[in-house]
Design a protein around this nucleic acid. Structure first.
Length: 486
RNA sequence: GGCCCCGUCGUCUAGCGGCCUAGGACUCUGGCUUCUCAAGUCAGCUACGAGGGUUCGAAUCCCUUCGGGGCUACCA
């Protein structure tokens, strides 16, 4: 690799919400830029105006920001090589297309889509390599005039010379393509708008990108990109370095898509996954630090990430492992961090409105559930019993405290708790253990389960005595009394 | 079909000729702990796709084969 300053770009085409695969690529791009102390450039490839929308562009920007993948050049932050939306660079592409035409590197092609499809169909039948047959490569002025008279539109097609293209992929080694399988490709549509094949190459050169790390689906488009560099007069040593990242696949072994799992990062965000967890997990898909470390921070990723350690084989997305990592990250949060992540979920669920007293109660309850949840979306259900106005024991648990034995336990607990002077979890536990366990000789599991159901409404809850403390004496006694008369 | 890429436990991976009767993590199973659920902890299950070479020695190198994936657009 050259010694010039590294510039890596992430250039999605936002035809939908950014998904797991996109983000894994963005993450590697970002990490590599940070690792090398280089520049991270973010560019929007919106040359397909029929599929890219402003909302998706904005969503992509928001997602990257939410994940903490900050960029040095691109939308919102600007830079010396903008604009960073390809739709705002149309004049640049038009100029280069004209240059290619002038130099005979490209030519106008008047074939209609139907004619091209017919050719491809014939090629399939004849079992030969499909692709443009060069029909319009050497048109005479008379032929061109005739086509124009017919009212035909023309696309601009790049002339692919005979020979081969070999480039070094940093992950896969040398890769060679015979031009017999790289047909002349379209640079500009009949309506004058540029295609990816033109824009991507022009922009990478003009924006001085040094490293192209992207999905392996683009591997076979690389010779076309290199052809454009040649036509632009770029010296081979100035071509960007290519590295094609392995796919992230779904359960069914196909490229991850909506059919096999949740792929939109927006979905993970609202399902209560932490950006750090998503990035940590995704970093492990196709890359590893080389040792047995798996829980890594963003800072460590930047420090450790190298293209050499990236795999060449595809990885399957495993939700279970993401969940495990998310749980780890939640447990590693400080209470204040945990609080600020949780509040939106509690508000959205209608558990709290956000008053100071509610927040204070949430904050003291959070330590009790921190090691009990895997996603933030579980917080509301875990804490609902502390805030509910119309308390009721859940249906599955109610029968478990309907028997005489349970009533006895609850009555005894009520009478022993009522005179209790200090309502803290240690005192509550001491009182209950003395009466229920020692005096009545009950098994803790039996005695405390009955109380748990009465106080929290469920057989599953945060630790009982701490929960009772937070609930307050009045509410607890009320609920126990209520359970007795159930 | 053609071209290209890929192939270690169920999954993510370590491994770059001897340290491998293949290590870690997630999942799963069982134990411990225990006021529930978790967390924690201990143990167990399970892998070098196959076949040929090269070599004293191969998961590691070569070939073939099989399998998977991508591309084959006036999408990116």
């Amino acid at each position: 690799m050259s010694t010039k300053k590294v510039k890596v770009r992430f250039a999605p085409s936002p035809t939908g919400d950014l998904h797991v695969g996109n983000i894994r690529t963005a993450l590697f791009d970002w990490a590599y830029a940070r690792h090398t102390g280089g520049t991270f450039l973010f560019r929007i490839e919106d040359t397909d105006t029929t599929r890219v929308t402003d909302e998706y562009i904005q969503a992509a920007i928001d997602t990257l920001k939410w994940l903490g993948l900050n960029w040095d050049e691109g939308p919102e932050v600007g830079g010396d090589n903008g604009p960073y939306l390809q739709s705002q660079r149309l004049d640049i592409y038009a100029k280069w297309a004209q240059t290619f035409l002038d130099n005979k590197d490209a030519y106008h092609c008047y074939c209609s889509p139907d004619e091209l499809e017919a050719v491809r169909e014939a090629q399939r039948k004849a079992n030969v390599a499909p692709g443009y047959n060069g029909h319009c490569r050497e048109l005479t002025p008379e032929q061109i005039a005739a086509y124009k008279a017919e009212g035909r539109g023309a696309v601009v097609r790049m002339r692919m010379p005979e020979g081969t293209t070999t480039f070094t992929d940093e992950i896969r080694g040398d890769v060679t393509f015979d031009h017999a399988f790289v047909p002349d490709f379209v640079l500009v549509r009949a309506d004058g708008s540029p295609l990816y094949t033109l824009a991507v190459a022009v922009d990478d050169v003009l924006m001085k990108v040094t490293h192209v790390l992207r999905g392996e689906d683009l591997l076979s488009s690389t010779p076309r990109q290199i052809r454009v560099y040649q036509a632009m007069g770029v010296a081979p040593e100035d071509y960007p370095v290519f590295a094609h990242l392995p796919f992230v696949m779904g359960q069914d072994n196909a490229k991850l898509s909506k059919r096999n799992g949740e792929v939109s990062i927006a979905w993970y965000r609202q399902a209560g996954y932490l950006p750090e967890a998503i990035c940590n997990y995704l970093a492990l898909l196709g890359w590893s630090p080389g040792d047995d470390r798996e829980n890594i921070t963003m800072a460590e990723l930047c420090e450790l990430f190298t293209v050499e350690k990236v795999h060449s084989s595809p990885a399957r997305f495993d939700m279970k492992k993401l969940e495990a990592i998310n749980g780890d990250k939640i447990r590693a949060l400080t209470i204040d961090e945990f609080l600020s992540w949780s509040l939106p979920f509690l508000k959205d669920a209608g558990i709290i409105t956000g008053t100071d007293s509610e927040i204070a109660l949430v904050k003291s309850a959070l330590p009790l559930i921190q090691e009990r949840i895997v996603t933030l979306s579980e917080v509301p259900a875990m804490l609902a019993f502390l805030f509910t106005k119309n308390f009721a024991v859940d249906e599955a648990s109610a029968p478990k405290i309907a028997d005489a034995e349970s009533k006895k336990i609850l009555k005894r607990a009520l009478s022993d708790l009522t005179p209790l002077a200090s309502w803290d979890h240690a005192s509550i536990e001491a009182a209950l253990r003395a009466s229920l366990i020692e005096e009545m000789g009950l098994k803790p599991r039996i005695a405390f389960t009955a109380l748990r159901i009465a106080a929290t409404g469920s057989t599953i809850s945060p630790p009982l005595f701490e929960s009772m403390e937070l609930l307050g004496k009045e509410v607890c006694l009320e609920r126990i009394a209520g359970a007795i008369s159930l």
